[in-house]
Design a protein around this nucleic acid. Structure first.
Lengths: 155, 155
DNA sequence: TTATTACCAAGTAAATTAGTAGGAAATGTG
DNA sequence: CACATTTCCTACTAATTTACTTGGTAATAA
């Protein structure tokens, strides 16, 4: 697994798209403005996202991007894999003395961890994140001024 | 959170250290050999790991590195944070029109996801990974030739 | 004394990230 | 139709990060 800043940009952009795309498509110019990402870099990212059918583009005036499918059917792993090319590491073939022996155990362990992280991110959808955000807002509205050390992060 | 190849190297090296360091310290030369990482790059990584007291170096002939504390007290998040400098993103201050309004929700959502991934990796220790590996070995020995689609990954 | 090892610093090649520039192809609107 | 808007596409580039190289110094066991 590989969670780089590139993947972060992509997830953030997709989140923006899901939030602002409820009535009509969202232009990359808007996302660029909102998130402080250059338009052309967004174009690159969205080319990858479009290739994996995570977004759908509409050209011309009034155009922009839609989510390619329901927000509940788009996982964080989907997004990150789309832009980050998912290099499979620990392909022990070709490595030193990795065949079968003690040596390979380390690789195998990392491989297990890696796929566990992947599973974790597969289970979180854009829809989940949004609902979670709504809950938090509702909670804040309900018992206002009740501040614990977790809630007061975003200034 | 940021899970780069650099963090991968560090986790792999720490795993190697934990596995081979049961009787006596492990030299970076050995890890370099085992994992195919250049000695000097390992030195850089271990400088960071040592600064966070995740490893302990012993100089001179017969020297090498020990884990800084019990394998159960070293989480994957610990390791990644040590080498990856943990840049805190989505510090919305200074950003566009991020103060309070709609705009910030996206950042906040990503921030939540980020800390969730962090929590996840905090809960997995080097010790956990090793025990998991041993279980897997035991399972293989017990009901041999029973292969499901998950177990047959590492060739 | 010597070999071995951690430890340290400066520099560098390669890869990746992020952004620029300059378009072409659709498409809604006047 | 003309035109503005927007996706879509390619090539180039600056900045940053990754991974490695080189050339040491300091500690220490034999």
């Amino acid at each position: 697994m590989r969670l780089s800043t590139k993947g972060r940009y992509a997830v953030t952009a997709m989140l923006d798209l899901a939030l602002n795309g409820v009535d009509g498509p969202v232009t990359l110019a808007e996302i660029s403005e909102n998130q402080g990402i250059s338009l052309s870099y967004l174009e690159q990212l969205f080319a990858s996202l479009r290739a994996k059918e995570l977004v759908r583009g509409v050209r011309g005036p009034g155009g922009g991007y839609y989510l390619g499918r329901s927000a509940d059917d788009i996982s964080i792993a989907n997004i990150i894999c789309a832009v980050d090319e998912w290099v499979e590491f620990t392909r022990c073939g070709g490595r030193k003395n990795c065949s079968g022996g003690e040596r390979c155990l380390t690789h195998s362990l990392w491989d297990d961890l890696s796929s566990e992280i992947f599973d974790f991110l597969t289970k979180i959808s854009i829809g989940d994140l949004i609902r979670r955000g709504e809950h938090k807002k509702a909670d804040k509205a309900a018992h206002l001024s009740v501040v614990n050390d977790e809630g007061s992060r975003a200034a």
